[in-house]
Design a protein around this nucleic acid. Sequence first.
DNA 1: TAGATTGTTAATCGATTAACAATC
DNA 2: TAGATTGTTAATCGATTAACAATC
Lengths: 218, 218
Amino acid sequence: MSDSRIEVPEVVVERLPQYLRALLLLEESRIEVISSQELGALLQVTPAQIRKDFSYFGKFGKQGSGYDVNHLVEQLRQILGLHRTWNVAVVGVGRLGRSIISYPGFQSQGFRVVCAFESSDKLIGQMAGGLLVHDFANFKEVSQSENVNIAIVAVPASAAQDVIDQLVEGGIRAILNYAPKPAIVPSNVKIRNVDPVISLQSMTYHLNNVDQNNGTDC
Amino acid sequence: MSDSRIEVPEVVVERLPQYLRALLLLEESRIEVISSQELGALLQVTPAQIRKDFSYFGKFGKQGSGYDVNHLVEQLRQILGLHRTWNVAVVGVGRLGRSIISYPGFQSQGFRVVCAFESSDKLIGQMAGGLLVHDFANFKEVSQSENVNIAIVAVPASAAQDVIDQLVEGGIRAILNYAPKPAIVPSNVKIRNVDPVISLQSMTYHLNNVDQNNGTDC
DNA sequence: TAGATTGTTAATCGATTAACAATC
DNA sequence: TAGATTGTTAATCGATTAACAATC
């Protein structure tokens, strides 16, 4: 009942889904109890970090033995808000948008793609991945009537900021952005970028600099 | 000519592609000079951070005016190793693997998908996105003869660690992992995970906790 | 020259880790 | 009880930011 406004660092929030995923795998393997030591080995993080991260939310373990896997899974689901279904809208139904709509990984984790939007006349009114494609101009009305909580953006970079501004205006507070362009949003809106090219480009830096030991030393 | 072994933090390396992308957009807009102030505003980072990040690699600006956009683009390309083409192999040609092969964003940035692999007999020998699908058992030989530098993994979570072990064994040093499972690799191998569900799950945490000001206060 | 902005050092901030008393 | 592991505090580490001399 204490005020508990001890700000949780964003890095911690971002690790929770990772912990959850590892624990679900343990559950499948019928492992019932795990220590921070063992979980850390699995995820390549220190046991101290795991315990500290959990401590922001409560006491989930038992001294001497560790964490009950099932219980911890339930707690993490609770914390992350994963006991309910989240309705998702996909904006942009080009090649990428269509594969997002059909991606089975979202549905299976409780993210239901309930509607699709486009600005191109050629696509509005057509079907994409089993969904009717709406005019993006009607985003606010349609998304409200469909109870959309989250938007996934799959439009060209040039359109991304405009589209995202409209999503925010339409009441969206969580955006997964596949457009290769970081967008600016108000601080009460969360956005995550999915950008495989950026990921590749930070790896080529390292590939390029492996001229450390090119055969000349022991 | 000094030894210059001042370790560059990984977070800095990960920001360089972001800077590069923003600069390419500026180039398109025919903007020739930009200050750390302006670039920071664009990317939502502090000017001090931009200057500090660049300082790990050299002096690219001019006091009083700022950075020459074209020159800075060239320097970043150089640093990141983007003046050459990188050959990519895709492992797993299910739905996801096929859309990766056909994704135009890689080719346009100098990442050429040159071969595809599978373990499933049904798919080996078939075509996928214009590429012949090889048996993953032959990964080492085929990838070497095709001069593959980078592998993209699009197999089920259950197969991911095994596949990744074999990639490493086959000489791969950079892996983009689309499997919903973090894998363990030696420290000389770089891996980046693309996991949209994890991204969504850290946003639902925030959506869930917007019970801050629910109408009761000013 | 006056104004602006870099490159860099030092100060600050925040996140990770080590250590250990509490306790199962 | 003895052994193990948590939850938490304090120490450490590293990254970000502020400040400013150098200089275009």
